[in-house]
Design a binder for these strands. Structure first.
Lengths: 200, 200
DNA sequence: GATCATCTTGACCGGACGGTCATCTACTAG
DNA sequence: CTAGTAGATGACCGTCCGGTCAAGATGATC
């Protein structure tokens, strides 16, 4: 790792928890630079704008998830519907551990950013939409596999997948409003009851 | 209406669409004052702080809903489960009309504010939590009535109500990420498939 | 007509914001 | 040894931020 990539990744590392725990508008470049031990001019050498930083932060969070819980949850060795349970559990344990350390339930950074910036910045909205789109695909493939395996009755896999993603985000939102990850524990499992029937 | 209350309500009227369409942090006091034709000193005569303004804005939005769509939807004359359909429809049509006028889907201001500020301001979080709590009660009473009427099988009304509220917020979030109210139209009706069984 | 509380005015505060820039350093390639 | 490039430095830009304040206007009460 040369000095250049190190500076860049230190900036991102400093930005991640801040954007996650507060909001896009509430975190300043100066604060990130101070925390990363980087000069502002150096920051703008790597990132043309604040938006480009948050874009990189979103990518890192997405990678963390894809290589972590998501990879574990969507393990082909698991029965399809158990993967969904696994993912909900992972969200619960993650939020719980964050709260233990941080004192707060921070929720899903993709959901947080979506509601904050998507009316003001179409580039950020498109980025977040792409993240959700990928998540939906995972759910969809899992549902299709479950139908094929006969675990569940036929349904509209595309819409049901989207509904499940919506539900998960909604549960995390409600949990955040109560600052209580147990909400995810209580409500999460009901995700499997969601059904959108195939159009006739 | 005397001059005092008029100034106060002009401030709130100017603030409402701004907080709804952007974010808490992104809307400044000065801008609101300019739009309302009020001096900043006058603003601070009525509101001790920006937070107090947004608290008043939340109350007005809650009243608008309570006296509008919510009153229509939770009409005792309607069969219980149809009330839930009505509410989802109302959310859809409302977001659709906002998009037609504004060009954007703005989503639910309570959800928007929750994800933006609830890690940073416990007073605002408590306020939003109270709003959600009231909404949940409406769902719960409706579900209990449906069970009593034999329309649906027995379930945990409290948790199912919370799950439905979560789902609605999640659907609106996803719709906002696509800037497309049709998402609510497609996914909304599945709200009735959500079930949390009574604990044994 | 005097008093008092309510409301209005507009200048002002310190500090934070995102972003720019000329200058300097360090490394690499020819 | 030279030239070029990537990166680091820190002062600087204009603007906006939430909030304050002393002074003035207004209108009701006694």
């Amino acid at each position: 790792m040369n000095a250049a990539t190190d500076t860049r990744s230190r900036i991102i590392a400093a930005a991640k928890p801040r954007f996650h725990s507060r909001s896009y508008a509430n975190v300043g470049i100066q604060e990130i630079c101070d925390s990363a031990g980087v000069q502002k001019g150096s920051f703008y050498h790597f990132f043309p704008s604040k938006r480009d930083l948050v874009l990189a932060v979103i990518d890192e969070f997405a990678d963390d998830w894809a290589n972590g819980f998501v990879a574990e949850a969507f393990d082909p060795a698991l029965p399809p519907m158990e993967r969904i349970d696994y993912l909900v559990d992972a969200a619960y344990f993650w939020q719980k551990s964050i709260k233990q350390v941080h004192g707060r339930m921070l929720g899903c950074i993709f959901g947080n950013l979506t509601l904050e910036v998507s009316t003001q910045d179409d580039i950020l909205r498109a980025k977040l939409l792409a993240i959700f789109s990928r998540a939906k695909s995972r759910f969809k493939a899992t549902l299709e596999e479950a139908v094929t395996a006969g675990t569940i009755a036929a349904l509209d896999a595309d819409l049901t997948a989207e509904a499940m993603l919506a539900y998960l985000e909604g549960v995390i939102l409600l949990a955040k409003s109560q600052n209580d990850p147990e909400v995810i524990y209580r409500l999460g499992p009901a995700i499997k009851t969601l059904r959108v029937e195939k159009a006739a």
